[in-house]
Nucleic acid binder design. Structure first.
Lengths: 211, 211
DNA sequence: TAGATTGTTAATCGATTAACAATC
DNA sequence: TAGATTGTTAATCGATTAACAATC
């Protein structure tokens, strides 16, 4: 099965598996079967095995998976075996909160820079991260070899910031502004859209209770 | 086509269409064709027509769609024709930032309550929203008829908070803690997982540049 | 009527799941 | 060997897209 196209769903699930495996490893567990991990995550065990099968064979039949080994394998597949340095554009309430978001470190992700266009913010620090002038962004991205940025600016500026980032050579963007950003080529955007997600919840439970 | 099962993808896209339609309406545009809206959003026009077809016929052949009418229709479909009152659990950095997130109001979504278990925070206000003791949550949900909550507590407490919310009768949860929450019945969770999304970006552009 | 655009059917594509042979 | 669990094939399911008849 190795070599076929791999979907985003599979990659996101690998990240979820990884987080759970790390948790188990910390607790001292060293071996797990596909059904044990998928029972905990509430998905079918075939999905776990299928997801891994795109990349090779990592288990032992009749036994299960070596957790330590699997953690390394998944980190390698995703590309987070080394530390991932990311930046934030927009040091408002949301951007500032994300700078201090504790969920990144488990995944080897570290925020190393923040940018804004407000002179009152530039030069100040949030949790040890200096807020820089947006005009310095291209140089920073290139010298620090940054591949991923989080956009936390008001929606009116989001596409403009997106274009600047692409020009500066960024490869992936996580967009928190409520607009759909358009990119081209090998630059990817995940639109993190809280309102759409709430709409989806509204519709789901309404339908569910209607039967 | 009316009556068939409708996917979450369709509902999320309806929300995206709605936001774009509102933007056009404000600019004074009153009529739009499926290809005009989908060109702007970078998707095929058949997808727009197909998404709407689950719910009825809303366009005029040879002409297009009346934007004002379509806005009302989509709001009705999703269930956001009236104001949607939501609450936040966890008044830390992220929770506080979300209380002031400006992207909700466009969608008729309003944050009406915040809860925490930290005595130093309880009784204070963030942007006019009183932070209440988590023990008051069940009463608040019932008296205010709250259906949706955002979980912004540390990951260790997230599943516990989730269980409390379900017991209190909540219907939808947007989870910002980096753990997959498990629910049952007509209670839905969207796990808003920034780390997995960054993993997905990492993998995507790595693959893309490899060809 | 002619041109434009919708709404829907059918074809395609891709993801999930069931089943089971392989093998530890 | 017997029991357990993997890895993979094939079947199923569902979502996207192409094509086009309907109709404004």
């Amino acid at each position: 099965m190795k070599g076929k196209h791999v979907s985003s769903e599979t990659i996101r699930r690998l990240a979820v598996y990884l987080r759970y495996l790390e948790l188990l490893y910390e607790k001292g567990v060293r071996i797990i079967s596909s059904s044990d991990i998928t029972n905990a995550l509430n998905i079918p065990s075939t999905q776990f095995r299928k997801d891994l099968s795109f990349f090779g064979e990592f288990g032992k039949r009749g036994v299960g998976y070596d957790i330590g080994k699997l953690i390394k394998v998944i980190r390698g597949i995703i590309g987070i075996d080394k530390k991932v340095k990311i930046i934030i554009i927009g040091a408002g309430k949301l951007g500032s909160a994300l700078i201090e978001y504790p969920g990144f470190s488990d995944m080897n992700i570290e925020i190393v820079g923040a940018f804004d266009n407000n002179p009152e913010k530039i030069g100040k620090k949030i949790a040890n991260i200096l807020i820089r002038d947006i005009s310095e962004i291209e140089e920073f991205i290139k010298s620090e070899k940054i591949e991923i940025a989080l956009i936390c600016v008001p929606k009116e500026h989001a596409q403009n910031v997106c274009n600047i980032l692409i020009k500066a050579g960024i490869k992936g963007i996580l967009n928190f502004a409520p607009v759909k950003l358009i990119t081209t080529g090998c630059v990817f955007v995940s639109n993190f859209d809280m309102s759409s997600e709430i709409c989806n919840l509204m519709y789901s439970f309404k339908k569910c209770s209607q039967g």
